[in-house]
Design a protein around this nucleic acid. Structure first.
Lengths: 345, 345
DNA sequence: CTGTTAGCGCTTTCAT
DNA sequence: ATGAAAGCGCTAACAG
């Protein structure tokens, strides 16, 4: 014990509990003021080169790490961002999270993830609770309306991902582009009667339906809407009966999960796809190309939406000004769509 | 302006930026001391019922939210936990994250997610950086050895998920149980020559291989190891040539991704499975039953590992004492395994 | 039951 | 170039 004031636990010395060293510990060790230590560590150059070196050495020896929360208090910046989304389960969101996480980490930021179970109430609650801990929020497929989001965004910047909020910066896929490609594809294959397997009651679903309807009409394709309960494999499977009853020769599914369900149910019923009918999915999740037949689908640029949204959230120049970034939505043609062949009903 | 000290922005009043109200604002408004406000809000009962009511009312009016970081400073508890894992991409981790997130949120805690890219160095760095912001860490499939983790765990509790660290509480699947079922299954189907598609250089892979080897020998099954580069679909596809060359009639894949790759490559090569050979995967990820043939696999209780690990992390009684929770690993038989039929090589 | 007083670890004027 | 001091928002003794 050379000095009673020296922290008695070097990092890794084998004790049973440890306290992180603070700038006070460093200051004491090198005989300087804590404020000098803070300066040396954070404002390179604003301190004598030699002492800065001593300070860094001491910091390293003590295994010093800044305490982000202590720093956040005076500065108001925590270096962490939150991503709030309806449902972590949804494979769609994973790529988005991944993109966001990658950008955050590259910028030295920390990411908090929070789920809302698709409830507007929980979403608002979550956002409010998080606001004082983060520098901004990424809201995915929000259930809150534009006004509510705009109000919330007054305290900390919010950017909307995968759905558009006019008052906020938003990053969304180019629905018109994707759906146009999908309908052109079906028309070119000779399909004249299509079903849209939609998720009722969702804003984003409304836009898709309206768009698809316009596109169908201008192509002289008849379109029917078949509602699914949830964006899941099970719900997709449940829709098979109604699809068959409708007599359509092709279906556009709300997402790949629903499409998968349809494929599986069809196989279970002894139908061969795409002979019985063609299927187009949405999102291009990991398993789309694993399915049999592999899924023709609209590849949502999830990853890019995540990175792009996080980039604008991080950027103080952009995170407060409403904007709309529209990313390409491409049709990926695989095996689940085929030319219509005339056959007996 | 009745009172210049009153915060001039009611929540949602339409201003352009907002400051969250603090306990000082509340104290001032009701003419009490901030500490009383703190007490009223956090220690129900330790305050006059009437004043507590006034305080709560004022808090609600001002849209008060406690600042978790400010609270964390004096208490040392932040109410947030971190989960650090090699790769968010891996579908295997999704369910685990989900389970953990659910438990955390149910307990009113916040979850931070951080990726390490499978690098031990980044992992250590990440853990150290996070330690002062969290109340504990969940480390998944760590690349750090037991000693390193134990040392790190001296500052904040760490629990290991999906791999075992003797000095820490760990939650793992019952490998012996699962692999026994798998080998019994193959033996019962008549297979006598099996390949293990393993990921070289991973601790967890070592244990699996050793176990599998023992099981094979005691069943009079010959076993060969075929190394894959990574736990991915691509790596699995790459292994097809070597699988065929080996002449085995069944393969045990490192995980479902690898198995998927093998299935796909086989289909591409015009082979019909399980006629050409049987395949058993590991994990039972979402797409396992979507594949054709659907995948026989060991269902890793990912969700339960996540919930269980988070529960022990949250519990101060358990998060510091080494323990090992072993969860059942069941064989799910689907279409990718079949009885061996004699046929010409 | 309520007020006073430190202080958590760090940053940031303002002096020196 | 460095030090002194105040303060971020909250909690926790300790008094009264």
């Amino acid at each position: 014990m050379d000095d009673p004031t020296t922290p008695d636990e070097a990092p890794g010395s084998g004790g049973t509990s440890a306290r992180r060293a603070t700038i006070y510990d460093i200051a004491q060790r090198v005989g300087l003021n804590p404020s000098t230590v803070s300066r040396a560590l954070n404002k390179p150059g604003r301190t004598n080169a030699a002492t800065e070196e001593r300070i860094r050495a001491a910091a390293a020896e003590l295994g010093y790490r800044v305490n982000p929360m202590a720093r956040a208090l005076p500065t108001g910046r925590s270096g962490t961002f939150a991503i709030v989304l309806p449902d972590i389960t949804n494979p769609v969101h994973f790529e988005l999270i991944r993109g966001a996480e990658q950008v955050a980490r590259a910028g030295g930021f920390t990411l908090i993830i929070s789920e809302t179970e698709g409830s507007a109430e929980i979403e608002r609650e979550t956002i409010e609770a998080l606001q004082s801990s983060v520098d901004g929020l990424l809201v995915v497929a929000s259930r809150l309306d534009d006004a509510a989001l705009a109000d919330l965004a007054r305290v900390k910047p919010i950017v909307a991902a995968n759905h558009s909020a006019p008052s906020l910066p938003s990053v969304i896929p180019d629905l018109a582009m994707g759906l146009t490609a999908a309908m052109d594809h079906l028309r070119d294959l000779g399909h004249r009667s299509v079903a849209y397997l939609g998720l009722s009651g969702l804003q984003i679903n409304r836009s898709r339906w309206e768009l698809t309807l316009d596109l169908a009409m201008s192509r002289d394709i008849s379109l029917v809407e078949i509602a699914v309960e949830a964006p899941t494999v099970e719900a997709g499977a449940d829709a098979l009966r109604r699809v068959r009853a409708s007599g359509v020769t092709a279906v556009l599914a709300y997402n790949d999960l629903v499409a998968h369900g349809l494929l599986r149910a069809a196989r279970g019923a002894g139908l061969t796809l795409p002979d019985a009918f063609s299927v187009i999915g949405f999102d291009d999740i990991f398993s789309a190309e694993l399915a049999v037949p592999s899924l023709t689908t609209l590849r949502s640029p999830l990853r890019e939406i995540g990175t792009n949204a996080m980039e604008t959230l991080i950027d103080p120049e952009r995170n407060r000004v409403p904007s709309k970034v529209v990313l390409p939505l491409d049709l990926v043609v695989r095996e689940s769509t085929a030319r219509l062949v005339e056959r007996p009903q």
